[in-house]
């Protein structure tokens, strides 16, 4: 199994940390992982993206042009990455702020309105975990228990009281994601 993912959106949306949690989850189940961010001056408000690879084999290139899955969280990233999904691949997006919805017919397109749900739950910080939950519903490449173990490892101990809220967000994402026909 090899899963090659691009996660792209605004800086501050938790794009990089979502990737990090996925990578940690992979380590928890003995997989090889790589995480490469488009680093630079684009922090909060700018665009951010990260390439995450989970595999049963040693990973060659951490940089890719095409992906099994694209998780897209703003319009600029949609414009940039919709075409980079491999035929038969998966595109997961949050409809918030998206004007030009994805139109490809040769991939599976899923919508998870994570921002709207996060607002309803009264905590916009768990936005990225709702997205992650939605993605894992479509591709359960890592077990929920390993995601939680990964979260526990990547969060400093003083934030461990937030673990239940994160778990709830993942469950919410699994519940609200829909396949766009």
């Amino acid at each position: 199994m090899t899963e090659e993912i691009i996660i792209a959106g605004f800086g501050g949306q938790g794009v990089l940390s979502m990737g990090k949690i996925l990578a940690y989850s992979g380590i928890m189940q003995d997989q090889e992982v790589s995480w490469f961010p488009a680093y630079g001056p684009e922090m909060r408000g700018g665009t951010a993206n990260v390439t995450v690879i989970l595999s049963d084999q040693k990973i060659s290139s951490p940089v890719l042009r095409v992906y099994d899955t694209a998780i897209i969280l703003n319009q600029q990233s949609m414009d940039k990455f919709e075409e980079s999904v491999k035929p038969g691949g998966l595109l997961v997006y949050d409809g918030n702020g998206i004007k030009n919805h994805p139109a490809r017919k040769d991939i599976t397109i899923c919508r998870v309105d994570a921002y709207a749900e996060a607002v309803k739950m009264g905590n916009t910080k768990i936005f990225n975990m709702i997205v992650l939950g939605g993605y894992l519903k479509m591709k359960p490449i890592v077990k929920l228990e390993n995601v939680m173990a990964g979260l526990k490892k990547s969060l400093p101990e003083r934030y461990h009281n937030l673990l239940p809220a994160n778990k709830e967000a993942i469950m919410k994402g699994q519940e609200v994601i829909t396949v766009v026909e």
Binding site: I27, V33, S34, W35, P62
Partner: peptide, 8 residues
């Protein structure tokens, strides 16, 4: 790239 990427 090697400096900024994360691996196990």
């Amino acid at each position: 790239l090697i400096g900024q990427m994360m691996e196990k």
